[in-house]
């Protein structure tokens, strides 16, 4: 059985777009954060697909780099979120409105 590579690419594009929409539309910081992770994983799928289509390993190596960076981002991101919301009830972006002008 074989699946055309373009299907994977289209799936990745759809996932990436859903991630973008999620970041722009959702107001819960944790969900926005998860949407960014989804965008990164859509990119990973794209890398692996292109890697198989081109018969080149570099794309799959790139995925490891992305995974490591995403993990580092999670650590810092959750750290920031925890330090802000330790004294609050919910994690809603609309509550953050001190900075404007």
């Amino acid at each position: 059985m074989s699946v055309p590579g373009s299907w994977y690419l289209i799936l990745a594009a759809v996932l990436f777009s859903l991630g973008i929409i999620g970041v722009l539309v959702r107001r819960n910081v944790i969900v926005m954060f998860m949407c960014i992770e989804m965008m990164l994983n859509a990119v990973n799928l794209t890398f692996v697909t292109f890697s198989r289509m081109l018969g080149d390993v570099a794309g799959q190596v790139m995925v490891f780099f992305v995974l490591v960076v995403a993990a580092a981002e999670v650590v810092v991101g959750l750290g920031i979120i925890v330090s802000i919301f330790r004294r609050r009830l919910g994690a809603t972006a609309d509550d953050l409105h001190i900075l404007k002008g």
């Binding site: 990164l40 794309g59 790139m62």
Partner: peptide
């Protein structure tokens, strides 16, 4: 800074993936 930075990094990364393809 973190949310918009992470967002832009993801866009940048997708750019790398498409260029690679």
């Amino acid at each position: 800074y973190f949310v918009l930075g992470g967002f832009s990094s993801a866009l940048f990364l997708y750019g790398i993936a498409l260029t690679y393809g």
